[in-house]
Design a protein around this nucleic acid. Sequence first.
DNA 1: AACCGGTTGTGACTGTGATCACACCCAAAA
DNA 2: TTTTGGGTGTGATCACAGTCACAACCGGTT
Lengths: 238, 238
Amino acid sequence: MRAPYGLNILDNCLTCPVREEHIFCNLSVHAGQRLNEIKSTAVYPKGAMLFIEGQQPRGVFVLCAGKAKLSTSSREGKTIITKLSDAGDVLGLNSVVSNRPYEVTAEMMEPGQANFIPRESLLQFLKDHGEVALRVAEQLSRNYYTAYEEIRTLGLSTSPSEKFAKLLLSWSTKSPQSDGALQVKLTLTHEEIAEIIGTTRETVSRLFSEFKKKQLVQLKGSTLVIRNRTALEKIVQS
Amino acid sequence: MRAPYGLNILDNCLTCPVREEHIFCNLSVHAGQRLNEIKSTAVYPKGAMLFIEGQQPRGVFVLCAGKAKLSTSSREGKTIITKLSDAGDVLGLNSVVSNRPYEVTAEMMEPGQANFIPRESLLQFLKDHGEVALRVAEQLSRNYYTAYEEIRTLGLSTSPSEKFAKLLLSWSTKSPQSDGALQVKLTLTHEEIAEIIGTTRETVSRLFSEFKKKQLVQLKGSTLVIRNRTALEKIVQS
DNA sequence: AACCGGTTGTGACTGTGATCACACCCAAAA
DNA sequence: TTTTGGGTGTGATCACAGTCACAACCGGTT
């Protein structure tokens, strides 16, 4: 089965990304069947918008393949990226549960696939299956935590270098923990990095130069190598 | 019935603050009784810490009287106030639901009273009463929204004056909407205001002078009068 | 009265990062 | 090949807000 954008369609992607905390995993047989009835799968090209900040919530998206960036922006055009999502993430849950407009824009950064569950169906489903509602509550509080992490970085760490170091470290922990040399595939542009840490493209460029000069990081093709983790950690809490 | 700190103890303060969205209101008789069994009431002096950032979650607090400030701070001592809570607010819910450390410190800004519901009891209660779990989910997503508001102000609005104007406006909308002259009781120190908008005490001082000079606001005793609302709104989205 | 702690006003100085400007690189298209 | 366009490096400039310093203020206590 072949989809556009050179992507294999996954049969049932509600459960495909193996995640302990996945809220739609390990459901009762009955609930699982019901969920399968109300979900629908779609494939998206790079740049596709799953939803846009301010829209009324249509439903939630469960990302099965591909990466998406969540961002919010001001009228004057300044944008901040608040989260990078990948397979397994549930997008739009808060808006659906509280019935408020999407608070972010979700844009595919690469071709991908997602399950869609319409708002009404999901809410009915949650009413019918109380045990899942609690799972949803847990997921929401996890979201809340990451939001607070964001608040802390934006509000407490003043200098761009601090935030930049923090970002690099957060990447290095997610990457394959093979021995000493920590490697990260670099898929973002400097502009995007700037939007994550809330600064300008030029500053990010300068930070890269600076960190390279200080032997903190090194660039091999498009993979970034963290050479001095402890030094980075020191910058973070300087 | 008289309590310390010159405060009247309220008989049942789970329901006292009249709030449409109060998660523990309008419960079934059975659930209401159960809730009354597991809650306990206490009175707190000014400066009392309900809980501290990093502590394991003991339970939730339902504020009945008095105001509390929620803050988070870095090792170097920089602090940001993320929310001002008053009667009716539920504090510590996220931490309890997700069983992670309190992400903020909750400190009473004036003498007050709060109900405490221990973690284990609450979780059991939620399992037994699925309909309340959904209410909790709704509350959590509301929390998420205010967190996002915070992210937007910290990340998108660059200048202190912008954030300051935003803060003043948010105050003026909450205050009694009596005709034109918007008045706000000013209970915070400049230092605290600085911690809300993420700047220094001196800058707040200067902003006050500047806004007074520009006839945007006026200080009558300890009440702040918003003289030119539209001008403030213009500063916000400048 | 005098004193005190916490708060507020304001001046002088300075470092930092945003802004503008332009050169450069590289891969894909023509 | 040349062209084009998105991405990147880097210098020069400058305004803004953080920092330090000190005076003034205000309400409560002794």
